[in-house]
Computed example of a mutant assay.
Amino acid sequence: MKKCLIQRIEWLYMITKEEIYKKAFEEKKKALKEKNARRDMMLAAAYSAQPRFRDIDRELSSIGAKAAIEALSGGNVTELKRRSEALANEKKALLDKYGVKDIEYDCSVCNDTGYVNGKICGCVKKLASFLITEELSHEMPIGRSRFDNFDLKYYPDKDGADGNPRRRMTAVLKACREYALKFDPANSPNLLFMGNTGLGKTHLTLAVAAEIIDKGFIPVYGAAENLFSLIEKEKFSGENRGAYDAMIKSDLLIIDDLGAEMATSFTKSALYNLINTRLLSGRPTIINTNLTMKEIEARYTARISSRLIGNFEAYKFIGADIRQQKALEKIGK
C-alpha cells in the first residue's frame, strides 16, 4: 500500500481549500444551469403547442400596468387582482398539463445558489467534502481505511516486551477517534505515529483524514519522499507551483512514511521548514514513521528531533505485521 501511495501522490499539491470550494460552486452552478435549461426547453415546447400561454401572458402584463396606474391614482384594484389570480391559476393548470414543473432544487435552503444570507450554505460544504474524498479515493484506500474497520483482533491480547498490543492499540484507536471528533485546525495537537511497518499507522491516519474531510476540512496527505520531491521541483525547476504553499497552509498536513526517502541536505531542510513553519502558525501535522526517535535524530538533525519531542504527541504502534497476518489468512483459505 505504501508503494502505491508513493507512486500516485503527485496530484496532492493542487488540493487546496480554495480550489475545492471553487470546484464545488462550479458543480452547483452547472447543475442549476442544466435544470433551468431543461425547464426552459419544456416551457418552450408547451408555448409552441398551446397559443393560450401567450394570450395569458399578454393579459397579465396588461393587468399589471392597469393595476399600477389604479394604485397611483387611489383607484380600486380588487377586480384586477381577482382576474390576475384567475389567469395565474389557469396558466399553472396548463403548465401541469404539459408537464412543466417548478425546478426541484437539491437544497431547499439556498435554492442551489450556494449562499444563504451572504454565507456559504451547508450544501456546498457537504459537496466539497465529497469532492475531496473522491479525489483522495483515486489515489489511496481512504474509503477502506476507516475507524470502524480498524480490526483490533490482529493485535495479541498478551503482554510482551513493549507491553500489551491489544490494550495499547485500543488506546491509540480511541485517541485517534477523539482527535478527529474534536479536530480544529487552529488548536489540534501534532501527532507522531511510530512503530514497525504493517501496524496500522497509515490506516489510522487515513481514517483521521476521512473524518475531518467529512467535517469540511481539507488535509494534504503524502509520502515524505513525494512531498520533498514536489518541493524540490518547485524550488529548482518551477514545476508544481503552489505545492509548498498548500502543505504549509492546509488544515492538516500528513507526512507518511518519514524515513523511507533518501536523506539529503535538501530533504532535511525541507522537513525542518515544514515542521517549524506549521508550528509557528499553529497548524497541526501528523507524521508516520518506522524510525525510533534516536534514528530520527541520527538521520536528520537535533533541531528536528527536539521539535518532534517537544511539540508532538507520540504514539508507538506495537504488534505483528498485519499485512503479513492477512496474507497468511488468505493462504490458509
Rank of each mutant, 00 (worst) to 15 (best):
F183G: 05
D112I: 04
F236E: 06
D256M: 04
I213K: 10
T16A: 05
K316V: 07
Y179E: 01
L204Y: 02
C123P: 04
F312W: 02
N226H: 15
K30P: 08
K333G: 12
A246W: 04
L271Y: 07
G198F: 06
L152C: 00
I296G: 08
K35M: 07
E135D: 13
F228V: 14
L227E: 14
T289K: 02
S269R: 11
K22R: 09
E79G: 11
G216F: 01
V109T: 08
Y179R: 06
N196D: 14
A207V: 02
Q50C: 08
K294Y: 12
R83E: 11
D184N: 06
G64Y: 08
R278Y: 05
D151E: 04
N276D: 09
K91H: 03
K92P: 13
L87D: 12
A44T: 06
K316N: 11
L308P: 01
E232V: 13
K28G: 02
L274Q: 01
G143M: 14
M140T: 10
L280F: 05
I248R: 10
S188N: 00
Q324K: 15
P219C: 00
L72G: 05
K35S: 03
P165N: 08
R323G: 10
P165Q: 07
R146F: 11
N76D: 14
I286P: 03
K174R: 13
K153F: 12
T113V: 04
C4Q: 15
A45C: 01
A263F: 07
A88V: 13
A65E: 13
A180P: 03
I255E: 10
D57M: 05
K66T: 12
C176Q: 09
K17W: 05
I304H: 01
V109N: 15
A44L: 02
Y155K: 00
K101G: 07
N190W: 00
D162T: 09
L72N: 11
C123R: 01
L72D: 02
V124A: 05
T113Q: 04
T301L: 01
R58T: 06
A93N: 14
K153Q: 05
V100E: 06
